[in-house]
């Protein structure tokens, strides 16, 4: 039992999420409905996209804390271009381009210049936010055209356009990680020197992880703008830390080389479910951070203790095995 819980983090977290939802459902009738599910999905969309962006970066044992700023920068790029009269596809392309360029800058600093990723992205975190503020003169971008807002409108089977894109991204990441090259991403994070020895293009893999992250933040920025219909000057601020927390919760190791897409998805859904449940329980929104943080700590603490207990048990078992073999030989001596 213990073993299952510790070894299958994703399944356990899924169970915990279900239990929490059921409990909330009992306390607040009407909570358990397709409508709530749809709310959780759309509330979690932006976080999901940011998390899916950071995911490969963390797998390669790097970190990217510039996600919130890149999101803001991309949303502003979209807003400025479409408000200047450009057609929506052009706006979207510009936003994606901004995200990819930001990612390439991060990737270049880390993979080509060898700057530690935490240092590089802390720097660009401020840099990108600054570029965004200068571009807007510190103003909010309001009155986005209807076309942008339509992207968040439910259409196809209750899914919005950006919802479908997010689903597609989940499938793409899942598929890519199952390929031969996908495994390289794990390998770089697991043992960078070994990957280099085996001739894997380590720097290129790291670079592309960051570019991918930038692209995902850009899609998250578009989703963000579509959902709320305007772009505040602090758009996305702090989101990267929530995304990293969700990843950790979903069993993605910050030491690299370990994690699954299912873990990303369930980690994000767990976080969003709690926020949504609090609304139903009529707990003021300013409680969200405290409760979310406490839940994260609780899960990680329990998980950590379980692992330690399990390791101690494995160790004891290993030495018991080692000890039984010689005891036989002692029997032989006694018999002799």
């Amino acid at each position: 039992m213990l073993e299952r819980i510790a070894r299958e983090r994703v399944a356990t977290l899924f169970l915990v999420t279900v239990i929490v939802l059921l409990l909330v459902g009992m306390a607040a009738p009407g909570f358990l409905s397709a409508r709530t599910a749809s709310i959780i999905w759309s509330n979690g969309l932006v976080l999901m996209l940011v998390a899916l962006g950071i995911f490969p970066v963390i797998l390669t044992r790097n970190i990217d804390v510039s996600g919130g700023s890149v999101l803001g920068l991309s949303a502003v790029t979209l807003g400025l271009t479409v408000n200047a009269g450009a057609p929506l596809p052009v706006g979207i392309a510009a936003a994606l381009g901004a995200g990819a360029a930001a990612g390439a800058l991060n990737g270049g600093l880390v993979a080509l210049l060898g700057v530690p990723s935490i240092v590089a992205t802390l720097g660009t975190l401020g840099l990108f936010r600054g570029v965004m503020l200068i571009a807007t003169g510190g103003e909010w971008i309001e009155e986005l055209p209807q076309g942008v807002k339509d992207l968040a409108d439910k259409g196809f089977f209750g899914l919005s356009a950006i919802g479908i894109v997010a689903l597609a991204v989940i499938v793409v990441v899942w598929l890519v990680l199952r390929t031969r090259r996908g495994r390289w991403i794990f390998a770089v994070g697991d043992n960078r020197e070994a990957a280099r020895h085996l001739g894997l293009p380590v720097r290129r893999i790291e670079f592309f992880a960051f570019v991918w992250a930038g692209l995902m933040y850009a899609i998250a920025g578009i989703a963000f703008a579509a959902q709320i219909g305007f772009v505040p000057n602090q758009a996305g601020s702090g989101l990267e830390l929530r995304a990293i927390a969700a990843l950790v919760l979903g069993g993605i190791s910050l030491l690299g080389g370990v994690g699954s897409v299912a873990g990303v998805v369930i980690g994000v859904i767990f976080f969003t479910s709690i926020d949504t449940a609090l609304v139903f329980l009529k707990i003021p929104a300013y409680w969200n951070d405290l409760i979310g943080g406490a839940m994260l700590l609780a899960v990680l603490l329990i998980d950590g203790r379980l692992r330690i207990a399990l390791e101690a048990r494995d160790r004891a078992a290993r030495y018991r095995r080692g000890g039984t073999q010689p005891s036989k030989s002692r029997d032989l001596e006694e018999a002799a």
Binding site: R180, R183, W184, F186, A187, D190, N191, E193, A194, A195, H197, L198, G199, L200, G257, V258
Partner: peptide, 25 residues
């Protein structure tokens, strides 16, 4: 073959051997 074997601790022996090769493990 380096002095200290370079392994990927979180992957299987098969994957460790085959990583970087042109086909799947």
């Amino acid at each position: 073959v380096p002095q200290e074997a370079h392994i990927f601790p979180n992957q299987s022996v098969l994957e460790n051997i085959c990583i970087g090769l042109p086909r799947r493990a």
